[in-house]
Amino acid sequence: MSPTKAARVFPHRHLLGIADLDADDIGQILDLTDSLREINERAIKKVPTLRGRTVLNLFLENSTRTRVSFEIAGKRMSADTINISGSGSSASKGETMLDTARNLMAMNPDVIVIRHSASGAPALIAKHVDCAVINAGDGTHEHPTQALLDCATIRTHKGSIAGLEVAIVGDIDHSRVARSNILALAKMGANIRVCGPATLIPRSITEIGGALTRSCVRVCHKLEDALEGADVVMMLRIQNERLGKNASRFANTREYSRYFGLNARTLALAKDDAIIMHPGPINRGVEMMPDVADSGRSVILEQVANGVAVRMAVLYLLGRGNLTDLEAIHQ
């Protein structure tokens, strides 16, 4: 921490997507992540910063990794975290999302973390509640904390993100991770190669961030083109649950694996010090061969560890109480 760097107030109330952030915001979160990471390695893995704050983890779509990561992050910052999952909640009894949100608001939480199968659900809820809302993945829209933890992992290994060549390979169409990562990496100055079967790449993907992504995102339909000289290889999961039974996007997983799976031969095309990433869970033998996933260049488990630190950073920046508290302070 340089003493000359002025303390900066994080200028956002919610974290709904990387689209709302600029490079300074992302840099601030990553710097804070670097400072907080050490807490997770102490004997007493807890700081009292968010004592008395309530974080509601509203996971209306299946998730283990992200939910646990947010829960641990909240607990290590001393917040009270409460988990609500889709099955068994009133959502499965037919309550509308807004009614759920209003009811939760009546319990006066400071942060709501929401995962939902509908794109835009967190943004909708953010309009109707007066606490901070964190998007933990909404439909095929965004998964901002995943992109931030990926950026944190890349920065740890490569020093900086600017100028890196990053290949994102797989089911881009259904991937909120890909969308958030394309935006975050583009804003941090990386060049991105997006790769997958034509049926899994949305036509407008290079337009996702306007002029910025138009200039730094390139679509490849051959894995070899995407990997050639890459600094970072990010493999995405084939989301069988979203692909639909009758509307197949590719012939079968064996064919997909042959053309787009990462193995020792195709990995050799990337730079010698390229790192391999995957947001998990991995379909071993489909998008990634086990020997590659378990190799020394795989940083997949570091991504998970960084996930906790990034979410601690986000909770720290956003968990400063509800709006009325803030207004009272500013008066």
């Binding site: 921490m1 760097k5 303390a7 900066r8 107030v9 994080f10 601030q28 710097d31 804070l32 400072s35 907080l36 807490i39 700081v47 009292p48 910063t49 910052m77 720290y316 920046l317 400063r320 109480g321 508290d325 302070i329």
Partner: peptide, 15 residues
Amino acid sequence: LYRDDVFVGLPRPQV
């Protein structure tokens, strides 16, 4: 992270 005034006044995000 241990201050008793973390969120009083402007937050101090630099840790």
